[in-house]
Nucleic acid binder design. Structure first.
Lengths: 233, 233
DNA sequence: ACATGTCAAGAGCACTGCTCTCGATTTAGT
DNA sequence: ACTAAATCGAGAGCAGTGCTCTTGACATGT
């Protein structure tokens, strides 16, 4: 049973990886819709039907790519956060890292944050990797709270009713952070990806393109909005 | 030359409309990727090749649907703005109208604000309709400025350099509105569609779903963020 | 050495977008 | 009113797609 022991197991793992690599290359070149099993098989010099031994369907191959993309982005976000001590700097670094990854892998970004692929239902296995960036952001908030550099904005209203209930998931991930800050964090979270999507999907062309300065300005203001104070030397 | 005079012209206009309607039905049922010319032709009881007399390619049909979608959304936004006197109320009404339309037409929303269709390059003709919602929002800002209910936030930094230059387009559409407010408007603009995209594309499932209360809360705070003050009875 | 499970290959089905040709019909110019 | 041009739907056909099923070769564990 030992994983990867027999030659067959090793060959299988290797080929699975090669298929995903080829698929990623196609994804980058053509986009998700034009990802074709036959083209992948052609690139690998095998027959299309053989791919079905490794991925039961095109959707399963897509799922694998989606999970890999979430994980790659999540890893970048985690790395960016770890490099910084000051929570506000960490926040900005994570925002920047997410954008850098997105710009470098636009098709993979579109795969996970763009419109859902037609007829494709995201399986359970994708939701955990999908949450990694949010976990990082909440971790930063939590640390800021602990070190006293998080100052809940006075003008932010206290969330009530259903909205307060919906925060429970986040409360557990960032204990001690005031609910009003959590709401603003969710706002900032959707804002972060909203900006990147607009940039990558061409909505900013003719106005805020290139978006570097706008992005810096926006994430900085969002840090204020959340209540992440500047640290003093 | 008189448009729509001959029987042929009328028949052509009619059929063009029917093709788009059928395509929209397919879009709603299956999504953009699965929009098939053959299926449309089947629904209309004609042969697939005949469709090419009306739309030179599948992409051209998509373009027509995209423009129609932008126009439909733009019309809703304009109507929502016209119904309100108070700028802040108008702002909230437009945000709400955009979301209502998006929820009612998720596939059309995905078509215009989701990931670009593979291999599809948006033609010039789409950029004017694409700007309608932004024009409405800037109009509200401009009116707020004129009536004195727009109070530029003191803590917002003054945009400099490239960022200040990129605002020129918006300055013309909303004369008199301070640059710092324009930057925040763009932030709010990306935020609005970021939230809706997250909601429609399933990123909020398990947390802020349903997103009604969150959306209300967010748009309200965004109004503050921009500087749209509450009006007093 | 043998039965078992796994593998790539190939043929085939029902689709797709798109092109071209073919007559039929309608329009526009004289 | 007659004719030439433009337009139309139909049909065949090409190259591509995802996917299924069968076949024969190979490696695996006993």
């Amino acid at each position: 049973m030992n994983a990867g022991r027999t030659a067959r197991d090793r060959a299988r793992a290797e080929l699975t990886r090669e298929i995903k690599d080829a698929a990623r290359r196609q994804l980058a070149a053509e986009g998700a819709e034009r990802l074709s099993l036959r083209a992948v098989s052609r690139e690998l010099g095998m027959v299309s039907s053989a791919l079905y031994r490794y991925f039961p369907s095109r959707d399963d191959l897509l799922t694998a790519l989606i999970i890999d993309a979430y994980d790659a982005l999540g890893a970048k976000a985690e790395a960016a956060a770890k490099d910084q001590d000051d929570p506000r700097t960490a926040w900005l670094a994570v925002c920047r890292a997410v954008r850098v990854w997105a710009v470098a892998h636009p098709h993979e970004y579109a795969l996970i944050y763009g419109s859902p692929v037609a007829g494709y239902k995201a399986p359970e296995s994708t939701i955990q990797p999908a949450g990694r960036v949010a976990v990082v952001l909440l971790g930063i908030l939590s640390r800021a709270q602990d070190t006293g550099v998080l100052v809940a904005p006075a003008e932010a209203p206290e969330p009530l009713g259903l909205l307060a209930e919906q925060l429970t998931v986040f409360k557990e991930m960032a204990p001690g952070v005031p609910p009003k800050v959590l709401v603003r964090t969710v706002i900032a979270w959707t804002q972060l990806f909203g900006m990147i999507s607009f940039e990558l999907f061409g909505q900013l062309v003719g106005t805020m393109d290139p978006a570097d300065e706008f992005f810096l300005q926006a994430t900085d203001q969002l840090a204020d909005f959340i209540g992440l104070t500047q640290e003093f030397g």
